[in-house]
Write a protein that binds this DNA or RNA. Structure first.
Length: 375
RNA sequence: UCCUCGAUAGCUCAAUGGUAGAGCACGCGGCUGUUAACCGCGGGGUUGUAGGUUCGAGCCCUACUCGGGGAG
């Protein structure tokens, strides 16, 4: 159940109640594709940096270790020892990102495993079955994510197929939630809006899926090659046609600036690999913009990554030390950087919620963006 | 003392007598529902020294210097 607590323009603050606890929105979900936040980050660490939701991936966990293994171990929550909400992506994005290793048909998608090349079939029913076995809090509908440069005809056909897939997803999820041996019989299902950069296709699709009554609505297929302006425009055009009483999730986005712009346009959920991947690559988020700790100018810098930051890296360690760890390929270096970046994102979302509660989001956003000039 | 192998980028090494390269290191950049601790770009050289042969030498010849291995 989603409760909107307050609005400022289209930006809104809310609570999403699930069997694994309340999610305070706007929220940034921390990406742990293979049931782990890359960079040696434990679920205990996540509790320490106030992560609300962890995101994992249907396709990756199906390939390894196998969703049946995870079901046997009591589901993803028990398997990875995390009792707060988990959202599983459906494998739809892999249809896009593993291009070359797959073939799309009406019944579903044929993949070649990126691990061992073995042939895998995944359609709407398979994706729901796998996610039901994983027993995540929120399952995502199985969709196709067309390229931002795909032509209009392709996108239109693709979106229509995604709608048909959504109906199959919903039906299968209802069946699975009613089965006695299902671990999470309250598993939620989010729909995914597609349509590349064509507002009319986006709007038409938003209207159709809104009538299908899902637990939440995602906007997918953005930040895949189009400009930021195109992405913001699509959000402005599309979100008004999604149900007001359901959470809106902008998939795979993004930079701190993208998130601020998204919140302003009515987005409640975000996720992105940036804080984790950039952390592993030594790129750190600060309120003064992004810094690259590999740069020589930090070799003797005694300051923390960010002055006044309460994260596990900044509380004890200098830029110079963490740079050394990164250069020496010591695992601790990546770990500290990932923790800092996730803490930065989680903290920014708290600040956004606080600002919304005070009705000062617009001012907060302006201040934050001015600070991060070099992001 | 003799024999032998070697000496090329910061390091480890490539280069039928015909425009000296790679990996690592160093410097910088990119990454948006993770095939990504990844990918890309860049600066770097009197080829140990001195001669010789040749149209042309990192490469062939001579001497020397330094280093590895062996013999005595």
């Amino acid at each position: 159940m989603f409760q909107v607590l307050g609005q400022e323009g289209r930006a809104r603050r809310g609570e999403f109640h699930t069997v694994h606890g309340v999610i305070h929105t706007p929220v940034f979900m921390n990406v742990g594709t293979a049931a782990a936040i890359k960079g040696a980050v434990s679920t205990e660490d996540l509790e320490g940096i106030r992560t609300q939701v962890e995101l994992s991936n249907t396709y990756h966990l199906h390939v390894r270790p196998g969703d049946k293994v995870i079901k046997q171990l009591g589901g993803l929550h028990r398997f990875m020892s995390w009792d707060r909400p988990i959202l599983t992506d459906s494998g739809g994005f892999q249809v896009f990102s593993l291009a070359g290793l797959r073939k799309i048909k009406e019944e579903g998608v044929y993949f070649n495993s990126h691990i061992d090349g073995r042939k895998i079939f995944m359609g709407p029913e398979e994706s729901m079955q796998i996610q039901s076995n994983l027993a995540s809090t929120i399952a995502m509908a199985f969709d196709e994510c067309p390229s931002a440069r795909a032509d209009r005809t392709y996108v239109k056909n693709s979106v229509e197929r995604t709608t048909r897939w959504l109906a199959r997803c919903k039906k299968e999820m209802q069946r699975l939630n009613g089965m006695a041996d299902t671990i999470n019989q309250s598993q939620l299902l989010f729909a995914i809006n597609q349509g590349a950069v064509y507002p009319d296709i986006r709007i038409e699709h938003a209207k159709v899926i809104s009538e299908m009554d899902l637990d939440g609505y995602a906007v997918g297929g953005l930040a895949v090659g189009e400009t930021h302006e195109e992405m913001y425009h699509i959000l402005e055009e599309t979100i008004p046609f999604l149900p007001k009483d359901k959470p809106v999730y902008l998939m795979g986005v993004g930079t701190p600036a993208n998130i601020l712009e998204g919140v302003e346009r009515g987005v409640d959920f975000f996720d992105c690999v940036y804080p984790t991947r950039n952390g592993r690559h030594g790129h750190l988020y600060t309120n003064q913009g992004k810094i690259n700790l590999f740069n020589a100018k930090y070799e003797t810098d005694p300051r923390p990554i960010e002055e006044g930051c309460g994260c596990p890296a900044c509380r004890r360690y200098s830029r110079a030390y963490i740079r050394h760890l990164l250069k020496a390929k010591e695992m601790l270096g990546m770990r500290l950087c990932v923790l800092h970046n996730l803490y930065f994102y989680n903290t920014m979302m708290e600040e956004i919620r606080d600002a919304l509660a005070r009705g000062e989001f617009a001012a907060y956003k302006r201040r934050k963006l001015e600070g991060m000039l070099h992001e």
